[in-house]
Each structure stands twice: as structure tokens, then as C-alpha cells.
Design a binder for these strands. Structure first.
Lengths: 287, 287
DNA sequence: GGCGCGGCTTGATCCAGATCAATGCCCGCG
DNA sequence: CGCGGGCATTGATCTGGATCAAGCCGCGCC
């Protein structure tokens, strides 16, 4: 079946405040390909400039999604002091590796990453996809060493915060402590959701749930909830969802035939959120 | 193939405190059968006695597995002050329900519990089995409400600790704070392991991994690592492992034929740990 | 522009585990 | 002591997704 044609989006400009301008799936892009989920660019002319590099949490557009959510202005400044911002990461580069000593926690600032856990025999399972504002490295707190790999799916920037300093500060700022606990807890809830998905949902439900999850997270970051670019391969989606890449591909095709979505390579548009929700919640239902 | 014969267990007596007397599959044991997973019995003659009921963390045999692990004596006393001990729970009773407001975190003190997450359509996935020393309720920190059900698989006792008090205390005691973070993090790691299991292991591997995990946890609590009683039904095991009860049953039978284990109902003995590990790590291998 | 490669789609077949269906066994209860 | 119900085992069959196998397509590179 023929793929729906997408209208062109406005070309990816940026506003002064540095709020990221979407990704979206433009065809034969303009010279500056639309970048998705990229943190505010610095003025093109600026050379590496520390003042620029160290955009503070207090000025960060992800503030309310990330660790500082809900902090008072004064507390925000204390947090600023301990966060090293903008460690850049090339596509394919490791943020940390399995068994590496825990140095810091990380927050994605721009770009997509994945974390994966490896089985003794080499099989690997992707444990999560991370977008700006997500905290990473939480797995390492328990044993002092990372127990998964974190890899950039595209060029990224991450903020780094030494765990000890964070713990020290959170002893002083109850709301930071509380929020940190909430983040840890939400990760546990997310994982339980994945266990439910992996343990008892069928392929189509898994995919539907996955797409809806991405959709919500994009929306929370101010991007379109219905039209976005998948930053990962079919194989990676499959690994995350406990499916083979062929199944992912087939299932997406079927969803397209059914008018739920339009896909073309990694560009995806959700055409019928409600049906998609139905599929996610009860398997085949809407035809 | 013929099933190994187990001697009958001592009949289910109770001590005065009402603590259930184990399971464990002791052969015609001594009058006091080794009890599995029951907190240390208090002097048999004591009647319900608050001083007794409130056995402090500092005197609890699970101290080193549970929240107080690694605390200095003085700090232990502060923790004692906030923990309400020994809320008893009958088999089948709910410790908390999905959507209930978070009151406290809980630590199992004796007995086995399960937590399960429900899908919109009624399917449910068991998210974990909990034994003495395990902390429960962590899922609720994020949103202030529980997102799973916790049910006693047998008569239990749990300790209760108000989250706010715990957070306040952990601001004062860095080692408590640290340990609490470690517990949260380890839960995340455990969940990632489950995701790997559910996403990429075959039935036999899942079961082998499950049994080895139980084995280790029993061992950590001073019980036999090779001979124990399953506290849950085949269906519950299946729900946890993403399998149907028939598959669980068949797979256990096959493992028995292969000389890896001996099962009879819920009594289980591991006959060959190494082969079991091989199975868990690489699927079929040892014959 | 064309070539090569990695990623994607699609078809054909296979198989692990689900599902359906009978019993069997243990335990609590009258 | 016998009966009934929940749990477990085991067999027969079915099927969703895996696996095997061709291409195809888009993109980066020469």
C-alpha cells in the first residue's frame, strides 16, 4: 500500500531562547536537515565558549522535565553548581559501558540514547530509549558499577552530575531529595510496565504501546505528538519490545494498512490515536 | 521418570506468636522444624506483648538484608523509632492495592508476598515475589499512589515505615540515604534483568534463572539454597515469567527428567546447580 | 552519477509455547 | 473416612512470531 505523503513542515528554525525546534520527518530537507530533539544551538558564529557551554539548569528548557523540576530559584543555583553541562557525544559513542565504575549520573540534554543490558551469551536487550530530560545511570547506584551500556543513537549532549555531590545537596534540599526519589520510583514503574508488556502483550499491542509512549514523551517536550521520527532501527525497536525486526516491520505495515499510522522509513505519523489506544489495550479490536 | 520421594513435612503448627511455621520440606524433622523464612521466634511462652512485638531493627535478624544495612548503632536507634513493626497479614490479604494512596513503605519480615500490575483488560503480570528483608511500595513514591497490588502468599508480617519520616531521617544520616538509594537502584537493575528474561529467553532458561534466583535469595537469608518450597502456584510462576502454567509444569517436569531438579508439588530440590546455570545462560546445552 | 551497504520489506516455512482437554493428586472439611 | 475443589500433570493440536530467504530502497561515498 502506498505511503501517505507528508506536507512539508516549516523549516527547522530556532528561536532565540534556544527552545529546540522539532524533528519531524521532512522529505528532501533543506540544507540544514531537520534535527530532532537537539538542544538549542549556540549562535552559529560562536566558537567553543564556556559561558555558552554552561547554560545553567535554571535557563534550560528541560528544567521542568529533568532533575531540577520544582526547585526554588535559590536551590536551582546550588544545583547549577554541581552539574557539568554539555558533554558532547557522537552518534554511536558510549556514554558509559557495562561494568564501568559509576562516575556520575547523566541527563540527556539533546539527542536520543539507548541503554542495553547484555546476556552472558551475547544476546542483548534494550532496556530503554532516552530523550532530553531523562536521567541515566541510575542502575549503577546499587553496586557502584554500571550494569548496562548507554549509547548515543545520534549526536547528543548530556549533562553530568556527580552522584556524591547530588546526594549531599539533596540532604540539604528536601524538594530535590524528594524529586530524585520520584525519578527513581518512576523508573521502577516504567520497568514494571515493560514487564507487563513483555510478559503478556502480543506484537501489535506492544508496538501500539511503544508508539503511544513515544508520542506522549514528545508531547511532554513540546513536540508534535502525532508526527515524529524514530531514532532507532527496527532491530532496536524489536530488541526493546522482545520482537524480531521482521515482526516489527510487518506489524508497522499492517498498522499502516489499517489506517492507524503512516510510516515511511523512520518517519512516523499517528493517524488514529484512539484506535491505537484500543489496540494497545485490548489487542485486535478496531478494524 | 519417577519422582523423588520427599518425607512429609511436619504438620503446620504455630508458635504462640502466631507466626506461621514453615514450610520447608524437612523430613520428619525435630520437634522444631527448621523454619524457612520466618523471623526469629520469640520465647515460646510470651503472650502478645508490645515490647516483644516491637522487636527493633537493631535486634532483627534481617538487619543486614533490609533497610538498616550498614547503619551505625546510634543511627539504628533513630530508624527503630520510625518503624512500626509486625503488621500481620493473612494469606491472601492485600498489603496495598493499586491506586491506593502511598502511606508507607513496607519491609517483609516473615512470609512471602507477590506484587502484580494489572492491564486494562484484566490480564495481570506478577512483578515480583518478595521475601523477608525485601522492601515494598517503592513504585508509589513517584506518583503518591501505588501502581500495583501487593498480596500475601501466606501469613506474613511486615514492617511499616512512613516515607516522609524515612526521607527526613535519611537527610540526617548519609549512610541511610545512600543505602536507600542503593535499594531503589537495585530494584531497577532487577527489573532490567526481568526485561532481559522476558524479552529474550526461552521457557527453560526463564525457569532455570528463576530457580537460581530463589536459591540465592534463600541462601542470603540463611536457608538452604538447594531445597526449598515454592510459595506460589504454577500459574503465578507463569505470570511472573511470561509463560502459561502448563508450560511451567512441563518445563519443570523436563528438568526433573534431565536430573537438574527434583520437584514434587511445591517442594523443590536443586540437584545440579551448574547444569542449571548452564541452562539459564545458554539455553539447552547440558544433556 | 553509480555503486555498495546497511536497513527495511515481504514471502514461505517452521516451531516453541499457547490453547484445549482429560485426568490425577493433595488437602481441607463435613 | 469419603468427598469436593483447587492445583498440577500430561497429551493433542493450533498458531503467532521466529527463522530463512529474497529483493528493494535510500544514503553516503567515490
Amino acid at each position: 500500500m502506498c505511503v501517505a505523503r507528508y506536507a512539508r513542515t516549516a523549516s527547522p528554525t530556532r528561536n532565540d531562547s534556544g527552545a529546540p525546534i522539532p524533528h519531524v520527518l521532512k522529505p528532501p530537507g533543506p540544507p540544514h536537515p531537520a534535527h530532532a530533539l537537539t538542544a538549542p544551538a549556540k549562535p552559529a558564529s560562536a566558537r567553543v565558549d564556556f559561558a555558552q557551554l554552561r547554560v545553567a539548569c535554571s535557563a534550560c528548557s528541560l528544567r521542568e522535565l529533568c532533575l531540577p523540576a520544582g526547585l526554588a530559584a535559590g536551590d536551582l543555583r546550588s544545583l547549577d553548581a554541581l552539574v557539568n553541562r554539555r558533554r558532547p557525544l557522537k552518534r554511536g559513542a558510549y556514554l558509559y559501558r557495562n561494568d564501568a565504575r559509576l562516575q556520575s549520573l547523566y541527563a540527556a540534554r539533546s539527542g536520543f540514547l539507548k541503554t542495553s543490558v547484555a546476556h552472558a551469551d551475547g544476546r542483548e536487550q534494550i532496556a530503554g530509549f532516552h530523550m532530553p530530560g531523562d536521567l541515566m545511570g541510575l542502575d549503577a547506584i546499587g553496586g557502584g558499577r554500571h550494569v548496562c551500556d548507554a549509547v548515543a543513537l545520534e549526536d547528543c549532549e548530556v549533562c553530568e552530575m556527580p552522584l556524591e555531590a547530588l546526594e549531599a545537596l539533596s540532604r540539604k534540599i528536601p524538594s530535590l531529595q524528594q524529586h530524585f526519589h520520584r525519578i527513581l520510583s518512576r523508573e521502577i514503574v516504567r520497568d514494571h510496565g515493560m514487564m507487563l508488556l513483555l510478559g503478556s502483550m502480543r506484537a501489535e499491542e506492544r508496538l501500539a504501546a511503544f508508539l503511544l509512549n513515544l508520542s506522549q514523551r514528545f508531547a511532554a517536550r513540546g513536540y508534535s505528538s502525532t508526527e515524529f521520527m524514530l531514532r532507532m532501527t527496527r532491530e532496536e525497536i524489536g530488541s526493546y519490545l522482545g520482537l524480531k525486526l521482521e515482526t516489527v516491520s510487518r506489524t508497522l505495515s499492517r498498522m499502516q494498512s489499517n489506517g492507524l499510522i503512516a510510516v515511511r522509513n523512520r518517519q512516523l505519523r499517528i493517524l488514529d490515536v484512539e484506535k491505537l489506544q484500543t489496540v494497545a489495550n485490548r489487542g485486535a479490536a478496531a478494524g
